[in-house]
Design a protein around this nucleic acid. Sequence first.
DNA 1: CGGCCACGGTGACGCGCGTCACGCACAGTT
DNA 2: AACTGTGCGTGACGCGCGTCACCGTGGCCG
Lengths: 241, 241
Amino acid sequence: MSMQAPYGLRIIEDCLSCPLREERIFCDLPPAGIQKLSAITSSATYPKGAFLFVEGQPPRGVFIICSGRVKLSAASSEGKTMILRIAEAGEIVGLPGTISGEPYEATAEVLEPGQANFIPRELFLRFLKDHGDAALKVAQLLTNIYHVAYQEVRSLGLSRSAAAKLAKFLLEWAGHHPGSQQDENRLTLTLTHEEIAQMIGASRETVTRLFSEFKKKKLVQMKGSSLVISNRPALKILGGA
Amino acid sequence: MSMQAPYGLRIIEDCLSCPLREERIFCDLPPAGIQKLSAITSSATYPKGAFLFVEGQPPRGVFIICSGRVKLSAASSEGKTMILRIAEAGEIVGLPGTISGEPYEATAEVLEPGQANFIPRELFLRFLKDHGDAALKVAQLLTNIYHVAYQEVRSLGLSRSAAAKLAKFLLEWAGHHPGSQQDENRLTLTLTHEEIAQMIGASRETVTRLFSEFKKKKLVQMKGSSLVISNRPALKILGGA
DNA sequence: CGGCCACGGTGACGCGCGTCACGCACAGTT
DNA sequence: AACTGTGCGTGACGCGCGTCACCGTGGCCG
């Protein structure tokens, strides 16, 4: 697992159990419910760079990611873009639009190729209406999505400096994406500086400069794309709260 | 209605029908559901400055606002605070925490005194489990809440200047809180400059300066707390789509 | 009435970070 | 080996806006 398998292979591996992957999300459902659910989902694989949906489209339904990673971003009219979240295997995208019926608010672009299950809107809504516990589960998923948006607001609005935002970002990223084995101070940065900049609302150059500043202050060490937090308390203070 | 009634009176007026106010939110439920729902809600009035809950508390349940207005805000460790949204009559607060079980993420402070119905967490969750359509409705409410958080992220992250954020804010506020009668260009600013600053992530002084700049450029006119958008297209451009 | 406090308005200052402009390293393609 | 594209590192510049400091006003209190 530690060596990089070619993508094609990984997809096949990951998706041997893929048709049932919804169980991971909707696992507390009675078997009959899962049965019904898998009857209305269809699976497909997506190459890197593909768009599951783009900002402004009428909502077609939800995607449950089996493998790969999907970037959710929003763009301004001036070409500036910002990343809201990176969804990974087991997560769901397109949920708010599907529930509300309003156009998708973000663009979902495949970052690492993989497979996803699609459930069309109408069927999904009807299913939820019939299955109270599934609807409740969906409400929980929505609060997760809300939560990361909320964190983003806090980070953008309450930080006094770009350094604070980057510090927060690293700490949160370390919690969410443990690089390898349980070490919570070690993480693998699968994002470019540009993308990090878009996540924390800063410019690419600032991110670069901050990274070298952090290194100089011995807050972090980095080799290639793997990063180690060597002074977590200081980083926490820098993040402010 | 155009004259300001004293608060006490307004509360009494608004709440004559208040015990059934959930109908406004959960109106598509069958009568039996509404019956059950009103059995587990309790009503109370809150003075100005009261806290429905504060950041970090374990979630007790949800509040459905009958009358008055409630400010939802978050504070950083350095004392900086920012406003996430202002909830008004008919809206629900405390929902994400109640659903997820995580501590309340924000602080809810009463801005204008009023009445609210409270539903304790355990009962609420059980109710949702039993009533699929209510759970679906809750999911819709959550997407509303998500939506304003999302707009906030866009505004904070994608705007190139404070002027842009203020312009966006005014346009959105005009849509949501039509001052009086249907005129979508007329709105009543019930917030202080300080509060507006906290909503758009800027300093109080900047807001003051921007307002006088907007006036000078004939984008808006203001008399007391009522504001008229006199050049909506220009404001829209300034906001940057 | 006089005191207090919340709110709004304004000037001066300065620094953080966005922007522009470059140069370098590395990977893939022909 | 040249060509191209993509991501990183770094210097210089400048201005937007946060911060500090102060004042005027109007409402509400005793």
